[in-house]
Design a protein around this nucleic acid. Structure first.
Lengths: 214, 214, 214, 214
DNA sequence: TAATAACCGAGACGGTACGTCTCGTCTTAGG
DNA sequence: CCTAAGACGAGACGTACCGTCTCGGTTATTA
């Protein structure tokens, strides 16, 4: 039976992969130069060497184009670290996030992206279900393993933990302009370990946090 | 010696105070509906019942108008709570913040505000130095008092603490869409108390933070 | 009693008469250069020194603009010549028509105008009822006078006469590309005089025309 | 069953004759509906049930397609009538022309064809040298025969005569919208006979109509 | 009281980017 | 090599919005 073979090649000339890449790259360059709102679709077309039609065949609007370009920049396979230490696993992920958001492009990109999310539910959903969900899934796995390992309490509010890990980073990126560096990564990782670590009053002898500090 | 009396009434017909208010209010409503970029000056004029000229006589650009409107909205006096309990003081401030950001106007305002901050340094500075700084000052005072009281460690990274308090809230507001409620307020307050509480290994007996959580 | 004074000045800034003229003139030039369909609205705007908005505030579409421009061009007062000689009157009118259609603007304008008439009943009606009707009225008067004077037969088919006077001219202009000159004017005028001149059969000897109808 | 043919079949799949007809017919219908410029190649393809490629393999451009379609409609062998009577020969040709231009398709086709001629010299030349020249050649022969026969003056301006025969018909078709009927055919034929007939003042006894019958 | 000056609402202005559309060509898989 | 389907680069279309300017008219202070 071929019914499982769901993919049917669409009729007609296929989209050119070359154009796909060129459009995204031109968009990223122009966003970096003029901002998420400041760039012009005509310039994207010109720089990518395509017609405007080729852009609007792929993306319904300028905003969707900007989103896709950013998504392309930001999506990457995320390996679940497994160092044996919950703190080190968290730290690895946080450091990677720090590295991503320190980049000048991502730093200039996110604010307007967030602004657009408020106006375009589609974009918000796409970002949440794609980029965000994948990162949260990885963090969740690390936390679950930490619980099983006994490094974290059984009743950890996982959502809160995720938001405490990610929140301060975005807060600095979007609002305060504070430094996004490894100190931040270590700070929140340690706070999670300490705040959600096993209750010392119950198990006075086991002090995970101590061991972690080498 | 009248030189100190600097004010000279300008010639001609004075500006109408009625229009001043109407413009700001119409702007706020329209920003909430369509975002800091999405609203139209013509709509502001129409809703305020003024001409576009009246707007541009007061503000040099759409951005300046948006900034002024937001500034007008956001400034308010903030009392420093003093319940005697560091946790309760934090909780009071957090609950107030929760109440503010649950409100539909602020909730719709902030995303586009953040987006605009990325492109307009003036707006970003105004918001950081006004709204944000005042809230951080109050929280800082509560934390300092907590340290002096011995509820918190002496070496608390205050900036990190502030970002852990505020970050998750904004993260949910702007990114995840997660719930902004008292559970969140309590979660982060407890995490701060626990994570930045006095080191139990150093002073195994005194555990103020423990007791407060009952 | 001011009720007869129906005109109420519209609110706001009035349209600029300068722009009205400039738009129509630029349109005519560009139609002559590129045809009723071939000209570009952006070029009209540029040549007229106005924005595209100023054009579309006045005309709902490119077609309506073209129609208005042509209508503006084509209306002019036409005097009825009265030299005392029917042939000379006809000749005067024909020479004037020749002069008009030799002109480079009209010569380039008419072909695409005719093409458009086939597609746009509005344009066709406007042209027929304005430009064409006024010229036919003048010719009709000359012919009537010729009949009364005895220079032409009483039973002249006036419509046919008008079409024989105008047809060859347009035929050369639109189809054959043949010369439009005074020789043509004289040729058709003489043909009309000779072909529709008084019937020699009434002056009892010659009866050619009568017999033909059998 | 094709092997018996000496004709060497070109490589590959042969063109479908079905498509040839369908393309031309669809083009004619769409030109009649929207004009020579107004129709869309995509609509032609859709209505003919072919791809755009099939059209552009046959015709190099939209204009060439339009021209070919019109040519297909309009070209037909034209016999030189020879009734023995110059008037009747002219009348036969004029009646045939009337029949052609009364048809609703030709009537809708010509205006935009003329419009296009003004912008496309190639099309104008093709139409003049093909369709038009063949008709003028036939008429010229009839007139020459008329001269030789003595029905028409020796010094007839043949070009003018042709334009007087064809002009009024096109004038009504393209400009005035007047009736195109046998009355018109007879009117211009009689006018030519009378206006270009032998000068009665010079040869007072010989009546043209007499001679025609030889 | 009259003149002067800046205000008022309404809306046209020049300019610019948008997103759509069509042209004529090119590129697939398949007959 | 043909076919239908549909993507391609190019560029005009008509719309929308910006920030400015121009109306007739209003509201203050100064003369």
């Amino acid at each position: 039976m071929t019914s499982q073979q769901a993919y049917v090649r669409p009729l007609g000339r296929p989209r050119e992969a070359r154009a796909d890449r060129a459009i995204v790259e031109a968009t990223l360059e122009l966003i970096a130069e003029h901002g998420v709102h400041g760039f012009r679709t005509e310039d994207v077309a010109a720089r990518a060497g395509v017609g405007k039609g080729a852009i609007y065949r792929r993306y319904r609007s300028k905003d969707e184009l900007a989103l896709a370009a950013v998504a392309d920049l930001v999506y990457e396979e995320l390996a679940v670290p497994d160092t044996g230490s919950t703190r080190d696993d968290l730290l690895a992920l946080m450091r990677e996030a720090v590295a991503l958001y320190r980049g000048s492009l991502a730093r200039r990109l996110f604010p307007s992206l967030v602004g657009a999310m408020g106006q375009k539910p589609d974009l918000a959903r796409a970002l949440r279900e794609g980029f965000l969900a994948s990162r949260r899934a990885v963090l969740t796995e690390v936390i679950q393993r930490g619980i099983e390992r006994g490094d974290l309490r059984r009743d950890v509010d996982v959502d809160l933990a995720l938001d405490v890990l990610g929140g301060p980073l975005f807060y600095r990126l979007l609002i305060t302009g504070g430094p996004i560096d490894d100190e931040l990564a270590e700070g929140v990782a340690d706070l999670i370990m300490r705040g959600f670590g096993p209750d010392p009053s119950r198990r006075p002898k086991a002090t995970t946090a101590r061991k972690r500090s080498r």
